[in-house]
Design a binder for these strands. Structure first.
Lengths: 212, 212
DNA sequence: TTGTTTATTGGTCGGACACTCAATAGCATC
DNA sequence: GATGCTATTGAGTGTCCGACCAATAAACAA
């Protein structure tokens, strides 16, 4: 009868254990915040002693950065899959906005704010945030460029438009869970509006009618 | 020969001491971050023992909220003075953008991110952030409304435009000290562009030529 | 000058944190 | 079933934090 407390040691391969630790840290980062990534908290989550986390990450700061990077890149893959098997750029962009401006994105929105603040004190995290910003701008502008090539979007500089869209999304994220919660659509739809305007699309072109 | 360490006690009126503490905390919040507001840190700054800070603020959380509120409302007064002795709404709005998108605003930008993150763990701060958001939206929409009344701006809903402008400013703030640092004007000028578009102004109407 | 009030001190307490390291015990291999 | 490697533990170090409180000494009134 194994009680709730771990009785027997479970010995895993370093690669597995490390991945498990990063996953746990990323999950905690999304739900509770990056400052809740502590040796004790992660150890508790995995049913393991704090010292073990130190063994894999001698400096917690590295785990924090890794957790953020892991969560952010996973979310980016969900927003704009690197492999796009089917669908037009317009459909993919609509899908992007459907998720990035919905409730499902709230945790990620908070995590971005969390990371942007915490990077002030954590050099390693600062670098990671920079890498992820580049990745997000890169992935989104890639999608926009594809749309321009297929004649669906019209803009001179897809990268600038990508930045503009992300700036608006981050601005809205800052206000989420706030005054703006029950707020006119002219505000909540700002990100989509910006995209439609800058890409020469008619109003409503990026609103998906079929959930997916 | 009074050494650098305080030799003699200096006894002040509760009102003075309290104001002094809040000022010190607000200054530290702007330069080092809200989590650096500790009994020891503030006490050191004022040449006073940590216990004294506890005496005036039995719970540090209240001081943190007060410090944020103090810094934010002071900055708001600087951006859009409540008393507007002279100048047109257009001039005042141009002045607002000159400061709110310049380097002088970087500390405040960081502080907003700081507070928006930390409110997750600090209920008292959460309320303060809400109050300040209302104050900022209120003050800015008041200025826009004045402009509409004088026929300088054209919009159906000044409050919505105020929110839109603030969303963009916060979004840009999130990216400041980042990739976007050396970034095309189409991005850095987004806040002004938004205002000009939503208020029916010609491009450049809100760019001040004379520093003030 | 004396006495009263109270702003301020000095010290203590428990808790949470990251980090270190010798000892222990899974697990694969033989 | 015995052996060796090493993943994992347990225990301890030092730091910083907020909170608490009795003792102290300024400032002021009598």
């Amino acid at each position: 009868m194994p009680s709730s407390v771990q009785r027997k040691r479970i010995r895993k391969s370093p690669a597995d254990r490390r991945a498990e630790i990063v996953d746990a840290a990323a999950s905690i980062a999304l739900t509770e915040g990056l400052e809740c990534i502590t040796l004790r908290r992660i150890g508790e989550q995995l049913g393991v002693r704090p010292g073990l986390i130190s063994h894999y990450f001698p400096a917690v700061e590295d785990l924090v950065a890794e957790a953020f990077g892991s969560a952010a890149s996973a979310e980016l893959d969900r927003l704009i899959p690197a492999e796009r098997p089917d669908g037009t750029p317009t459909e993919h962009l609509a899908r992007f906005f459907a998720r990035a401006t919905g409730e499902a994105y709230d945790d990620m929105s908070r995590l971005w704010i969390n990371a942007r603040h915490l990077r002030r004190y954590r050099p390693v995290l600062r670098d990671r945030v920079g890498v992820q910003e580049d990745a997000w701008v890169g992935r989104l502008s890639g999608l926009l460029r594809a749309g321009v090539e297929r004649g669906e979007f019209r803009t001179d500089d897809p990268e600038v438009v990508a930045m503009q869209i992300l700036v608006v999304i981050d601005g809205l994220g800052a206000y989420s869970n706030s005054v703006i919660d029950n707020c006119p659509p002219a505000v909540t739809r700002m990100a989509v509006t910006t995209a439609e305007r800058e890409l020469g699309l008619p109003s409503g072109a990026l609103i998906r009618t079929t959930p997916n």
